[in-house]
């Protein structure tokens, strides 16, 4: 794309999680394109997005831009401030010419940590950078957050990504730096300048590149073995006075008071055997025993 005279619409999609600075990245790019004389449209949807949900912003520029959004499969450059968000939008990338630029940072939402079975892993995207980069035309998986943190401000990670983006687009380096300096708070101009330079230098190192810290990071992160157990929960009815502390405090909400106002295990399948109820019961009416299931010999 470098040096190509623009006679069509260029499409850049910037994605991330609410609060990460997706809008800042797209604003810088849109201003740069406009200053360079292009017709520009920048489109995002606010609302629920800012509350930890996914955020995305379309930036389109060229001689004349019609649609504010980029058609699927037409994205020239996909910039992801978070790994799983990048993966969500990958199918929008142009298959044979698109460039993927991603921070390897993982933001694992509480929603992905809901499986309470023994040994359960978070329901986070399992794809590794190696698998993905192999399938795109050009791609960079960088540790932008780590690089920015080393420079003294992890929040400048989006400027590191702008640095990488600057190597794929045809605007002079000074123009980028000037607009970034005008956009970020005065006290963080220096760190952002350095972040930009570092991201740019890193991406100059070839059309496909994966940061060493990102490599392998996204494999299932534990090979810990968790023996199966049977949980036996016993309630001594005579001792239970129906105070319902256990009912209120059980994290799985599997206990209840029955008609006689005695605690009982209503949803045994949900019980994780955490023993909280046993510890909290003022009358020691509950006992929880976890017995390892003897596994058949190999």
């Amino acid at each position: 794309m470098m040096g190509e005279k623009l006679n069509r619409t260029m499409n850049v999609l910037i994605v991330g999680v609410g609060g990460q600075g997706v809008i800042m990245v797209s604003k810088v790019l849109a201003q740069l394109c406009q200053a360079d004389g292009h017709d520009v449209k920048q489109s995002e949807v606010h609302g629920m997005a800012k509350r930890g949900g996914g955020v995305f912003s379309h930036v389109r520029f060229g001689p004349k831009v019609w649609s504010p959004t980029i058609p699927e499969g037409e994205v020239d450059i996909l910039v992801a401030l978070e790994w799983a968000e990048g993966l969500r939008w990958l199918k929008h990338l142009k298959p044979d010419t698109g460039t993927f630029i991603a921070d390897c940072q993982k933001i694992v939402p509480p929603f992905a940590c809901r499986n309470r079975k023994r040994g359960a892993e978070p329901a986070y995207a399992p794809q590794t950078p190696e698998e993905i980069i192999e399938q795109v035309h050009a791609g960079y998986v960088m540790d932008a957050t780590g690089m920015a943190a080393n420079l003294g401000n992890a929040r400048a990670s989006n400027t590191v990504l702008l640095g990488a983006l600057s190597t794929v687009l045809d605007f002079p380096e000074e123009a980028w730096v000037e607009i970034i300096a005008a956009t970020v708070p005065a006290k963080s101009v220096e760190v952002n300048r350095a972040a930009f330079a570092e991201g740019r230098a890193w991406a100059m190192g070839g059309e496909k590149r994966i940061d060493v810290t990102a490599s392998g990071l996204h494999k299932a992160h534990s090979e810990v073995h968790h023996p199966q157990v049977d949980t036996i929960l016993e309630i001594t009815e005579e001792w239970c006075k129906g105070c319902d502390i256990c009912v209120k405090m059980c994290p799985e909400r599997c206990l209840r008071l029955n008609d006689r106002l005695k605690a009982e295990l209503a949803l045994p399948d949900l019980c994780t055997g955490c023993q909280l109820c046993a510890w909290l019961c003022p009358d020691q009416a509950i006992s929880v025993t976890n017995i390892p299931v003897t596994e058949p010999a190999e």
């Binding site: 999680v17 930890g52 499969g73 993966l87 969500r88 990338l93 929603f111 992905a112």
Partner: peptide
Amino acid sequence: RVNAAPFEFAPMVRPPVL
């Protein structure tokens, strides 16, 4: 339209939260 993109995995669910 033909969608030639090779990426057919189900994206992770990330609902908005408080």
